[in-house]
Computed example of a mutant assay.
Amino acid sequence: MNPTPSVPTIAPRPTFGDFFQGLALLGRAFGLIFRSRRLFLLSTLCAIVTLVSLVALAVLLWRYTPGLVSHFFARPDSVYLQPLWYLVLVLTFVVLLVVGANAVPPLLLAPLQDPISEATEELCGGSSSPPFSLGAFFRGLVTGITHTLARLFFLVLGLGVLAPLNLIPGMGSILWTALGSLWSMMWMAGEHLAAPMTRHLYPFSEVRRMLRERRALCLGLGAGVYLLLWVPVLNTLFLPVAIIAGTLLYRGLLEAGQLPPPPAARGAVK
């Protein structure tokens, strides 16, 4: 099967360049936004909502993170130890902002995630989305919010498992931040790969299998989304870009034979 020009060509087995190919999916996603009027309009709406929510989130975290850090690691009186405390403060702020950015905007924009993914698949040669209906809209809204909350549970669970590291004075908080960032990157890849796969009725076990078998490829995507959050202006587009990139990854894995045909399509054939 020859992939359409929009579908990335992914090797059927892991390669040395998988991480960078996953990272490059974000560039492809930006390109598709400016090739499709529908994607551009949806992404613009997402950017406006994301900007407002990220600014509000950053203000709240900047106010309350010092108290949270002091609860685990009291601000030292020593001039020599204070830089370490501020380092822990900044790193904790970064992780919490990433977690919040992957919780608040997706919940607010849940109704738009499937339309963005569907429009991406149309550019990849997929079938057109069905006509709008109020019933389908509300079903999509409920399903999107439910699945987002479920995936957020796993994000918080992973960070919670690492939380006891904070009990190690100083270095424990730094270690928690570093490992928490890596967990967040992998989770971001799973979050945005799961979105189109859920829409096509794949079980979550298939998502886990892809995260395990194509770890470097998924980590590249997650790292790109993570870094995008820290680029001013562009970070307002992180959600639509991540959704598009995750859909491109799904289509690439499907074309490479890494995934079986969608269960929804198999059911329709039956």
Results as ranks from 00 to 15, higher is better:
residue 1 M to E: 11
residue 3 P to E: 07
residue 6 S to R: 13
residue 6 S to I: 00
residue 9 T to Y: 03
residue 9 T to N: 09
residue 10 I to W: 01
residue 11 A to R: 06
residue 12 P to T: 13
residue 14 P to E: 09
residue 18 D to R: 02
residue 18 D to W: 01
residue 20 F to S: 13
residue 21 Q to L: 03
residue 21 Q to C: 02
residue 29 A to E: 07
residue 30 F to H: 12
residue 35 R to G: 04
residue 37 R to F: 06
residue 37 R to C: 01
residue 38 R to F: 01
residue 40 F to H: 08
residue 42 L to N: 06
residue 42 L to A: 12
residue 44 T to W: 00
residue 44 T to G: 14
residue 44 T to V: 11
residue 44 T to F: 09
residue 45 L to M: 10
residue 47 A to I: 09
residue 49 V to M: 05
residue 49 V to A: 15
residue 50 T to S: 15
residue 52 V to D: 04
residue 52 V to M: 04
residue 54 L to T: 05
residue 58 A to R: 11
residue 60 L to F: 14
residue 60 L to V: 12
residue 61 L to T: 08
residue 62 W to I: 02
residue 62 W to G: 15
residue 64 Y to N: 10
residue 69 V to M: 08
residue 70 S to L: 01
residue 72 F to L: 08
residue 73 F to K: 05
residue 75 R to G: 02
residue 75 R to H: 08
residue 79 V to D: 13
residue 79 V to E: 15
residue 80 Y to P: 00
residue 81 L to D: 15
residue 86 Y to R: 02
residue 90 V to M: 11
residue 92 T to I: 01
residue 92 T to N: 06
residue 92 T to Y: 01
residue 93 F to A: 09
residue 93 F to D: 02
residue 96 L to N: 07
residue 96 L to Q: 13
residue 97 L to N: 09
residue 98 V to S: 07
residue 100 G to P: 03
residue 102 N to W: 01
residue 105 P to K: 12
residue 107 L to I: 14
residue 109 L to G: 09
residue 112 L to M: 10
residue 113 Q to H: 14
residue 115 P to F: 02
residue 115 P to R: 14
residue 115 P to S: 12
residue 119 A to H: 12
residue 119 A to G: 06
residue 123 L to F: 10
residue 123 L to P: 14
residue 124 C to S: 10
residue 124 C to T: 08
residue 126 G to P: 12
residue 127 S to L: 09
residue 128 S to E: 14
residue 129 S to A: 15
residue 131 P to D: 05
residue 133 S to A: 13
residue 133 S to I: 04
residue 134 L to W: 13
residue 136 A to P: 02
residue 137 F to N: 07
residue 139 R to N: 09
residue 139 R to C: 04
residue 141 L to A: 08
residue 146 T to A: 13
residue 146 T to C: 01
residue 147 H to Y: 10
residue 148 T to Q: 15
residue 154 F to A: 05
residue 156 V to I: 10
residue 158 G to W: 01
residue 162 L to W: 03
residue 162 L to H: 05
residue 163 A to V: 03
residue 163 A to W: 07
residue 164 P to W: 05
residue 167 L to M: 10
residue 169 P to V: 01
residue 169 P to W: 04
residue 172 G to H: 07
residue 173 S to V: 06
residue 173 S to L: 13
residue 175 L to T: 08
residue 178 A to S: 10
residue 184 S to R: 02
residue 186 M to P: 00
residue 188 M to V: 01
residue 188 M to F: 07
residue 190 G to W: 00
residue 193 L to Q: 06
residue 193 L to F: 13
residue 197 M to T: 05
residue 198 T to A: 11
residue 204 F to K: 15
residue 207 V to H: 05
residue 208 R to I: 14
residue 212 R to L: 14
residue 216 A to Q: 08
residue 218 C to Y: 00
residue 218 C to L: 03
residue 219 L to G: 00
residue 219 L to Y: 08
residue 219 L to P: 00
residue 223 A to Q: 01
residue 228 L to R: 08
residue 234 L to F: 10
residue 236 T to V: 11
residue 238 F to A: 14
residue 239 L to P: 00
residue 241 V to P: 05
residue 241 V to I: 13
residue 242 A to E: 06
residue 246 G to K: 11
residue 246 G to S: 09
residue 247 T to G: 07
residue 248 L to H: 07
residue 252 G to R: 13
residue 254 L to A: 09
residue 255 E to F: 05
residue 256 A to V: 06
residue 256 A to I: 09
residue 257 G to Q: 09
residue 259 L to Y: 08
residue 260 P to T: 01
residue 263 P to N: 02
residue 266 R to S: 10
residue 269 V to E: 15
residue 269 V to D: 10
